[in-house]
Write a protein that binds this DNA or RNA. Structure first.
Length: 113
DNA sequence: ACCGTGACCTAGG
DNA sequence: TCCTAGGCCACGG
């Protein structure tokens, strides 16, 4: 496959939309799946523009399971409430049982090597 | 066209 | 195990 920059955002959104209900993933996991493991920042940057799309951005957190992007949501605890609404426990911006609710696209959709 | 910024990650001490 | 430093690439000013 060639040119991914143009499809980069769409790919990120596509993967994010495939995140199951009550599950979360990380920017790095999505980046790795897209073959951009070293450009995880771009994934987060792409999410900034996801407000125009139907993308569950609240289901995407960092590698530690910390809600680093909560400040980009309306209010102050919207992201946390959205997650808790799906049965995910969040304490101090930290997702509990992160390893359990974590959803790896590379593992679910298949790793491309 | 150059520079600074950013919802991150990995490696080394 | 915690902290620091470097790398990544796109976008706005």
């Amino acid at each position: 496959m060639a040119k991914r920059t143009q499809h980069f955002y769409d790919d990120v959104y596509a993967v994010a939309q495939q995140i199951p209900y009550g599950r979360v993933t990380s920017y790095g996991a999505i980046a790795r799946y897209l073959g951009l493991a070293r450009s995880a920042r771009m994934v987060g940057y792409a999410m900034t523009n996801s407000h125009s799309k139907e993308v569950p951005a609240h289901r995407v957190v960092n590698r530690k399971g910390l809600l680093t992007g909560k400040h980009h949501f309306e209010g102050t605890n919207l992201m946390q409430q959205l997650l808790e609404n799906e049965g995910i426990t969040v304490i101090a911006n930290q997702i509990q049982d992160f390893g359990t609710v974590f959803w790896d696209p590379s593992e679910a959709l298949g790793v491309r090597d």
